[in-house]
Simulated assay, not measured.
Amino acid sequence: MTEGRGVKPLDIALVVAMGQNRAIGRDGNLPWRLRSDMKFFRKVTMGKPVIMGRRTFESLPRVLDGRLNIVLTRDPDFSVPGVVAVASLEAAIKEARTWAAREGADEIAVIGGEGVFSAVMPQADRIYLTEVHAAPDADTWFPELEAGAWREVSRDAYGAGPQDDYDFSIVILERL
């Protein structure tokens, strides 16, 4: 069956770590070190297509293994082995849906940055939110969530581990 024949479209999930002040980045990096959250990020995105902006991609140490890396960029010369470069969010979602259908992925993961999160928010079905219990200096922010549009389906609190700067909670939100 296809999406046009009554099958629900593949869910789009945002995967984000956000400070209490909505901070998500500073100087092209995360404004904290949370090794425990990196493990969660890997678990929740593994085997899925991941959509990100070029600056988010450039902040990564390498292409994310076990996932289709789709990078939104206005640079027509952007080319990295193991990355699908696209010029629009629509093209990114189309690539993600095609790959997910072929590989059996159950959702599309959008991993940032600020502009990509803002653009895809109206289409998002789920948010995997790491609430960092800190308000660090930042230059990149997660958009405000529309009041009454989301319900919390789970929340787990974690104390800072040996390689974590702060305590944090992992929250899953689903669109109402």
Rank of each mutant, 00 (worst) to 15 (best):
P61A: 12
E107S: 13
Q20D: 06
L145E: 00
K8T: 11
A135S: 12
A17S: 08
G66H: 02
L34D: 10
V132E: 07
D167M: 09
V7W: 14
G113W: 12
I70Q: 01
V84C: 08
W99S: 01
A101V: 01
Q20H: 10
V171D: 03
H133Y: 06
I93C: 04
R155W: 06
G6I: 03
P76D: 10
E152L: 08
A101T: 03
T2K: 15
L60Q: 14
I170A: 02
G6W: 13
R22T: 05
R26N: 06
F142K: 09
D165L: 00
V153Q: 09
D165A: 07
D165T: 02
A13I: 14
S36A: 05
I170L: 11
S79K: 14
L30H: 06
R97E: 12
F78T: 04
A101F: 12
I127M: 07
Y166C: 11
T56V: 03
T98D: 08
L145T: 02
W141P: 04
E3T: 14
V116G: 04
E131K: 15
D164A: 07
H133F: 05
G4S: 13
S169Y: 02
A85D: 04
F78G: 08
D77E: 15
R42D: 10
A134C: 11
L68K: 05
A109N: 09
M38Y: 06
A92F: 01
G19I: 05
W150E: 13
S79V: 00
L129I: 15
L89E: 07
I127D: 04
L72K: 10
P31G: 08
Q123H: 11
E90D: 07
N29W: 11
R33T: 02
A13K: 05
Q20N: 03
G28Y: 12
V84M: 05
S169L: 14
L173V: 10
G47M: 11
T130P: 11
G159V: 06
I127T: 04
V63A: 01
G82P: 01
Q123R: 12
R74P: 07
L145C: 09
A147H: 08
G25M: 15
G6H: 08
V15Q: 00
E95W: 10
G115F: 07
V83Y: 00
R22M: 12
R67L: 03
L10K: 00
A100I: 02
L10C: 05
A85F: 03
T2V: 11
V50D: 00
T2H: 14
D137M: 13
E174W: 04
L129E: 02
G159Q: 11
A157T: 13
A96I: 05
T130G: 03
